[in-house]
C-alpha cells in the first residue's frame, strides 16, 4: 500500500468518525430528553394549568404554556403568511427575472433570516415601549411574526421560483393579468406553502428569546390579545432554573413535550416537501 492510499484511508476514517459524532449527537440529545422527560411526565402536565404551590413542586401542569405557545405560533404564522405571500408573488410575478430590486430584496431576506431572535426580541420591546403596549399575546405574536417572515419568504420563494416559465407564459397567453397569473402560480405552490408554514411553526414554537421580552409569563390561559401569556420554551427555562428538584423534573417533561411537538412538525414538513417534489411539473 502506498502513501497516497494510506492518506486517503486515514481521512476517510476521520470522515466516518465526524459523521458518527454529528449524527450521534442528535441521538444523544433525543435520548437524554426522552429518558429524563418520560420519567417526569404525567397527564396533569398537559391537561392542567399551574395550581397553588406549583413552583415549589405542588400540583398542576403547563397547559397554560402549551396553549400560549400554540396561540403565538398559529397567530404569527397566519399574520406572517398574509405578509409574505404577497412578497413572494411580487418577487416572482411582478418584478422581472434577474431584476436588481428582486435580488436586493432576496439578499435582504437572507440577512434578516440570520438576525438572531434576541435582536428581534429587543426590537419588539422598543416598539412596545414606543406604542405604549404592555407585554401581551399581541406583542408576542407581532415579534415572532417578524422573526418568521424571512423563513416564510425564503422557503416559498424557493418553491415558486422553480415553477417552469411555461406555466406563467400559458396563463399570460390566455390573456390573464399578472394578478390572475399570480393566483395560478399560488395554486401550483400550495404544498410548498404548507411546508414553509410548518417550518415557521417549528421555529416559532421553539423560540424563547423573542417572547421573553414581549409575551410575558402568566399561569392563566390568555383570553384576549392584550393579556400576557406563558410559552413552552420559557416554561422549560424558568422551571429548570428552580432549585427544587420536583420543578426541575417538570422542566424535563416540558422539554420532552416541546421536542415531540417539534419533531412531529419537522416530519410533517418533510412529508409535504417530498410529496410536492413528486408532483413537480
Amino acid at each position: 500500500m502506498n502513501k497516497r492510499k494510506i492518506e486517503e484511508t486515514f481521512f476517510k476514517g476521520l470522515m466516518h468518525a465526524a459523521t458518527i459524532v454529528i449524527v450521534g449527537s442528535l441521538f444523544l440529545i433525543l435520548w437524554t430528553v426522552v429518558s429524563k422527560g418520560f420519567h417526569a411526565f404525567n397527564w396533569d402536565m398537559v391537561s392542567k394549568v399551574p395550581e397553588g404551590g406549583f413552583y415549589i413542586g405542588k400540583g398542576g401542569g403547563i397547559l397554560n404554556a402549551i396553549i400560549g405557545s400554540v396561540y403565538i405560533t398559529v397567530g404569527s404564522a397566519l399574520l406572517g403568511l398574509v405578509i409574505s405571500i404577497p412578497v413572494v408573488l411580487y418577487l416572482n410575478v411582478y418584478s422581472k427575472k434577474g431584476s436588481r430590486f428582486a435580488s436586493a430584496t432576496r439578499l435582504a431576506f437572507d440577512v434578516l433570516f440570520g438576525i438572531p431572535s434576541i435582536v428581534y426580541g429587543a426590537f419588539g420591546f422598543t416598539i412596545m415601549v414606543f406604542f405604549g403596549l404592555k407585554t401581551s399575546l399581541l406583542a408576542g405574536i407581532i415579534t415572532v411574526t417578524l422573526l418568521i417572515i424571512p423563513i416564510l419568504v425564503r422557503a416559498m420563494d424557493e418553491v415558486v421560483r422553480v415553477i417552469p416559465f411555461e406555466l406563467s407564459d400559458a396563463a399570460y397567453s390566455l390573456g390573464a393579468t399578472r394578478w390572475e397569473t399570480a393566483k395560478v402560480l399560488l395554486r401550483q405552490s400550495v404544498p410548498g406553502i404548507i411546508t414553509a408554514l410548518l417550518l415557521s411553526f417549528g421555529r416559532a414554537i421553539g423560540d424563547a428569546a423573542c417572547v421573553l421580552f414581549t409575551a410575558g409569563y402568566t399561569d392563566n390561559i390568555p383570553t384576549s390579545l392584550h393579556q400576557p401569556t406563558a410559552t413552552l420554551p420559557l416554561a422549560i427555562f424558568f422551571q429548570l432554573s428552580s432549585p427544587i428538584p420536583e420543578v426541575q423534573e417538570r422542566a424535563y417533561a416540558a422539554a420532552l413535550i416541546l421536542t415531540v411537538i417539534v419533531l412531529i412538525i419537522s416530519i410533517a414538513a418533510k412529508y409535504f416537501s417530498k410529496k410536492f417534489s413528486k408532483n413537480k411539473i
Binding site: 437524554t32 421553539g206 424563547a208 420554551p233 422539554a255 416541546l258 421536542t259 417539534v262 419537522s266
Partner: peptide, 24 residues
C-alpha cells in the same frame, strides 16, 4: 437517510439544547 437527520438537528429548539447541555 442522513440528510433528514441532520435537518432534524437544526429543528430542535434552543431551549432543548440548553436542557441537554445542563444535563449532560
Amino acid at each position: 437517510f442522513l440528510n433528514p437527520l441532520i435537518d432534524l438537528l437544526s429543528g430542535i429548539p434552543p431551549v432543548v439544547y440548553g436542557v441537554w447541555g445542563v444535563l449532560v
